[in-house]
Write a protein that binds this DNA or RNA. Structure first.
Lengths: 342, 342
DNA sequence: TTGTAAGCGTTATCAA
DNA sequence: TTGATAACGCTTACAA
């Protein structure tokens, strides 16, 4: 804790606290001499204004929070987050805002939201969507949702998950695959895929739409669904489950590149010849995807752009401008060579 | 801003502010009935305690800051940071602390430090080392340095940069390379490599030690030094400079994997046959390194572990325990195939 | 140009 | 079991 306060400076300089405050925030309102003197004394005493006290007074913290759906370690194991934060960071830097990461506290979003000393929130792929929205509204600071169902009254940024998912599944089907395992991102609460919400639901819907075009669906036999954390390790473990089953798919379609990459690694380690014996497709187009062997066919989404846009929207809200705009960014199929013809 | 305050609750419940505070933080000190009543009213009014006011009163923010040396966008373009934050996040999660990212504000570390409402700092690879330390000390909160010269009075975590750098350079030299370009991480202030400090200096010293063993040094002719931001783009641009020069090296030794990978990409795009025509080595062993083509020979450093350790040290400091321990973690040469025999 | 004093919303001390 | 009341350190009308 900073020991020396403005009162101390004021005492030593023989002025009031106001003067000290002015010297720092509004020097033009003081005579040059006194301002200089105050600053000198402050410097000498090593005075640092207490940021909490300042926030208390101004009602502003100068920070925005990013509400992430999983604990920090897990969420940083997916390269999507850094890309997103790169975009957020760009806007924050310009606006001189700092960035607070707010993961669920002991599983509770409410506590994360209530504890964070921030001026606003960016929410990323919320799981307990509706209840979190209630808490957020209650908290009384502006927020912008990313990768959640558009909500009335709050700006949001989404990508065309359904379209992207549909196009990648079409690509896989067009290559002749019929025995497919879809690896979904494991959501906090277990739910049947028909009950997915937000991004998860949109992607599943995209897959289903493409499957439907050839009269297929997720039937648990030819086309199956697995869930996995969005980490490389999660992908590996999903693959282990796949390899254990008697029925082997010819293609894996993962909802996240990092899952696909983990699964590929595990497959390679087990001697599967990719993509000849098994095809893979992902979602996100993280940098790794282009480098993977075989290079991963996936859906590109503008992660960094999403961050920028979301942060910009929040900024506008903080400044009182802007109403609840909703962006829908395109998602684009990126064909590489991890999906082989069957 | 949360609209309803404890005073409001107190009024409505016909009790004092103290009682309301107790109902939340110390219910056992109230009769069950009143506590219940207060909580009910608070719930009904959608009361959320103001975290800033709480911090003001308790003197604790419940957050720690990570001081990064560059603006957020740049620093997130290097996969090293997420790995580090994964480790930090693990400890934070356990200790219920949130994580604040504190990049330089308008180039000023001092402002970053003074503005951040946190209970302590982790500093990552400081550039203006000494002056920042002064500010940090003045700020009066505990801190732990990572990738900086050990400082008396503050715990620190480092890896054996010199040893790691030495071993990778030895490896390159043993492969017969004599025309080498070293790509250093660009530091904020330009300085001759003899004036580097901290991690940069240690790595350079490692390279120099290995070179010295065969009677070579950084002479600007056979062995040259370039600087680049630690991003893929930075690596690409460095490579462009390399290709422009009349004298082409047979090997590139980069201080960061992401630089090496960017350089490799650029080289490949320009039709250079890797590693036959040009060898590459990096530092860090980020996940990408193993996937790169050719797989990148590099020095593995325990990024995540560093984060854990640093966070743990800070935690202990926050709890008043522990003195200024300094960890030195091993760095290990990882031979893949990006360095070809000459 | 400078000072007084009233907040800001909690927590914590000490009485009652 | 509860309540006044004083911090906490700063900003900011409003006065002088």
């Amino acid at each position: 804790m900073p020991r020396v306060t403005i009162s101390e400076i004021a005492r030593r300089a023989g002025v009031s606290k106001t003067a000290v405050s002015f010297a720092f925030n509004n020097p033009s309102r003081l005579s040059e001499a006194t301002a200089k003197n105050i600053l000198a004394i402050a410097e000498e005493l090593g005075f640092v204004p207490n940021p909490v006290a300042r926030s208390m007074s101004t009602g502003r913290t100068g920070a925005i929070g990013v509400l992430v759906p999983q604990p920090l370690p897990e969420v940083f194991r997916n390269p999507f987050l850094p890309a997103f934060l790169e975009g957020v960071g760009e806007i924050c830097t310009k606006a001189r805002l700092s960035l607070m990461l707010a993961p669920p506290i002991e599983g509770s979003m409410r506590r994360a939201i209530d504890n964070a000393a921030v001026d606003g929130f960016l929410t990323l792929g919320l799981e307990e969507f509706k209840s979190t929205m209630v808490v957020l509204r209650q908290r009384g600071v502006p927020y912008v949702t990313v990768d959640s169902d558009p909500i009335e009254g709050a700006p949001g940024v989404n990508v065309d998950d359904e379209g992207g998912a549909c196009s990648v599944m079409r690509h896989v089907l067009a290559a002749g695959h019929r025995e497919i395992v879809i690896i979904a991102i494991r959501s906090g609460k277990q739910a049947h895929f028909r009950e997915y919400v937000g991004t998860l639901r949109n992607r599943i819907n995209g897959y289903l739409a493409a499957l439907d075009e050839i009269g297929a669906t997720i039937d648990g036999r030819k086309v199956r669904l697995l869930e996995s954390p969005a980490t490389e390790q999660g992908g590996r473990e999903a693959m282990i489950r796949v390899m254990k089953a008697t029925r082997k798919p010819t293609a894996i379609v993962a909802m996240s590149d990092i899952i696909a990459i983990g699964a590929m690694r595990e497959a390679i380690d087990r001697g599967v010849d990719l993509p000849k014996d098994m095809s893979f497709a992902g979602f996100d187009d993280v940098p790794l995807a282009a480098w993977a062997r075989p290079p991963l066919t996936t859906v590109a989404q503008p992660a960094c752009r999403k961050g920028q846009l979301a942060a910009e929207l929040l900024l506008q809200r903080l400044e009182g401008k802007s109403d609840a705009v909703h962006y829908l960014l395109p998602a684009e199929l990126v064909v590489r060579s991890s999906v082989a013809a069957r």
